[in-house]
Each structure stands twice: as C-alpha cells, then as structure tokens.
Simulated assay, not measured.
Amino acid sequence: MHPIKVDEIKSVKGIMENEIPQVEQTSSDETNSVKEMETEIQQVEENSEADSLEGKEITAKRGTKPPLNFLAILNDANISIQDFSPDELCNQLYKGVFIEPKKLMYYVDKELNKNCFIVFARKLHITWIGNSDYWNWTKEEDICDEYFEDIEVAVLLGVCWLEIKGEIRTIDLSPGTVYEVVFVVMMLNVDWCECNMWNYSVTLTLILPHSKKVTRHENLKQKPIGKWFEIQVGEFKMTPENVGEISFQLGEFSSDWKCGAVLKCAIIRPKNY
C-alpha cells in the first residue's frame, strides 16, 4: 500500500447530491431519518469552499460507490485522494485508511458498503496504563504490516481495577444502519499470575448520546486461550437521535487481581445478521 499524502481535499457536496437519493428506504420513518441525517452531515461540510469534481467522478465511474460521506471523513483528517483513481480509492477504503497513525482506522465494509472504524489500543483509555508494573506495550506483528505502522497491543500484567474506555463520534457512521461495538482481546496462559482473566466475567457498557446506557456481562471461562476473539459491548441503530458521541467500556472491579490478557482494539461496524 502506498501511504496517502496529506493535502487539502475538495468539498463533499457533489457526492452527497449523487449518493443520498440512492439510500435504501423501507418506510416513511426511515425516509425522515435519512433527511435528518443529511442535515447533520451537511453541517460537517459547511467549512469546505472547493468544488465537488472528485465526488462526481467517483460516483460516475464506479458501480459500487463509497458511502455518502466518505469525503467528509477524509477531509477532516486532511487526507487527499488526488493520486487515486476511483477503483484504487474504493479498494483502499476497503483495506482501511489511518485517520490517526497507529491509533484510529477508517474502512468501508465491502459487502454492506457502510462506514466502519477500528480504535486501536493506543487510542483507548486504559486505567493504570502508565504503570509498567500493571500494563506493558508490545508490537503485534500480524495486525497491520501492509500499512507500514508499528501497531501496539496492551498486555495486562496485573490489576485489581480493570477499566478500558473508548469513544467515537457517530456523525461519521452510515445512517439507518444497525452497528455493533466489539473489543478484540486475547487470553494468555501464563505461569506468573494465578488470577488469569478467564476466571472472571467482565462488564460491558455502551453509552449513547443523551446518556442512554446499555450494559451486559460476559463470562470469559469458555473463551479460547492464545487466540484473538471478540467481546461484544452492545449495538445501536444510527438514527438522528444517536448523532453525537458514543462511549464504550470494558471493566472488572472486584478486589481480586486480574492478569493474562492482551488488548488489541475496539471495532465499530455494521451488525451482520
């Protein structure tokens, strides 16, 4: 993959005009939701004064088009698409684009054509991460070698208060779509700690705009050892009521010590029924 150059990008208005009429609508309620989401997305583009030739070219030449607001997302990250043909750009979006190097990746689900995000461990808020007696950082070789980034994962050495948090703004998600949030973790079989994480249940919390909270618990006893697996935090539908910022959390707060786990990332993606 060739790194994308940073430069000024042109307005998202052209692709908005071509894409929004093609959003699938199954009811009058969804029609209203899309119109309200359009209003929200237009607020993102108010500061852009350039023309929309790139968006028009992409929608004209590509049968499968990127989500309607992909240019706004790249614009906010100061990422240029000038060196990419429409096909190259779509393929790059399927692979993923780093919005923040080593921390935040944006990608498009190829099958569903929806916006998705990966929040890597370095961008998550981990309690006690600054204390090397409790947590350690190490590079995971097989995560993103093709992106020329040294992606790090967080290794839990031992804590009582286990707390991991993240957040993301929902204006960049695809309207009318049911999303899920998952943490990607690995359990370790280590001999230096008797209180391995598979002995515990963790509390997962999803906080939506307007402070609506969804909480669930998951037992780790049946999880595989030495392999990456996902823990679902919760799911939500991208409606106008959920425009804002969501936060997601994983925790275990007993007085017992916990150890022997590795945190890779959190993923915000469409729920695939």
Score class of each variant (00 low, 15 high):
P101E: 10
K56A: 00
V159P: 13
E8A: 02
T64C: 03
Q249M: 03
S80F: 02
D133W: 04
S33W: 11
G63S: 06
L124S: 02
V190E: 11
I225T: 06
S52M: 03
H125K: 15
E163T: 06
S52Q: 04
V181N: 11
N136D: 08
S211P: 07
S52E: 06
E54T: 02
G63N: 13
L173C: 00
E57M: 01
N91F: 02
V202P: 07
A121W: 01
N47P: 10
K56Q: 04
G251M: 15
P3T: 05
L112T: 07
P224T: 04
A77L: 06
P240G: 10
I168E: 09
M105I: 06
I15A: 14
D191K: 09
D145T: 02
P101H: 10
K13L: 07
Y147Q: 00
A261K: 07
L124A: 04
Q232K: 08
E140D: 04
E17T: 04
V181A: 10
S201E: 05
R216V: 07
K13V: 10
K227W: 00
E167C: 05
K110W: 03
D145C: 00
E57Q: 04
V108S: 01
V23A: 05
E100N: 15
D191P: 06
E146H: 13
T203L: 08
T177C: 08
F236C: 01
E111H: 14
V6M: 11
E140Y: 02
G14N: 13
S11T: 15
L206R: 08
